[in-house]
Design a protein around this nucleic acid. Structure first.
Lengths: 117, 117
DNA sequence: CAGGATCCAGCAAGATACTG
DNA sequence: CAGTATCTTGCTGGATCCTG
């Protein structure tokens, strides 16, 4: 990889990084990956997230078309959040993270690294 | 994916997320992916990063065994930073991010999403 | 039920000055 | 050259109160 290639990579990679930049982004995506959920349902499942943090996270993910917001005009209204196709395909990144994390999650001594240069 | 699987996933995925959680983490890794570099060399290539931000980022990546720090006892000393094997294999995640970013980076209208549910 | 608005704390990150 | 130490700032995220 040369320096020019790197600059080219940066734009799409930053787009991917933006998605999980928020503290709760990953947890929200993981929840919606499990199943579509309504606001308070999501909130309960996420444990100690504040209302503001959840709405902020959802709005941001919505703007990126990772999460879809559907309003049902009941009384009172109910809102269902789900992953878009774009959001579902983000799973490929999370899978790769999982693989890496399972292999390297625990810190290993650096001895072998020295040898391989 | 059920809820229990998700909990299991969370640990390794968080390990992967920690690596690029810092503002400059990705850029440092990208630079070192390009080639091993010394401190000020890295700093110049990163443009407007502060000394503190760079040292903080490097220390953190070092603690995670993603980056290796090698000191050459010259006068004055020179220090070379490089990716460990763990760090190099992080490239698989970045590649996946690149693929996703190239496909979905631009925001697309949500019409099709509606239809597919 | 699903938020909007406002205020505030805490931490990441930048600026600056100094050092082996 | 490669940092450390200290101070300051800006932004994220949480707490609280209020609303259609």
């Amino acid at each position: 990889m040369n320096i020019n290639e790197m600059q080219v990579c940066t734009i799409p990679i930053n787009a991917a990084l933006d998605v999980i930049s928020g503290k709760w982004s990953y947890y929200v995506i993981a929840q919606l990956c499990h199943e579509s959920q309504r606001f308070n349902q999501l909130r309960r499942n996420l444990g100690d997230i504040s209302i503001k943090s959840l709405t902020d996270t959802l709005r941001q993910l919505e703007k990126m078309d990772v999460v879809h917001r559907k309003v049902y005009p009941t009384v009172p209204v109910s809102v269902e959040y789900s992953l878009t196709r774009k959001g579902k395909e983000y799973g490929a990144i999370l899978s790769q993270m999982r693989l890496w994390g399972e292999k390297w999650g625990a810190v290993v001594p650096d001895d072998e690294e020295e040898a391989m240069g």
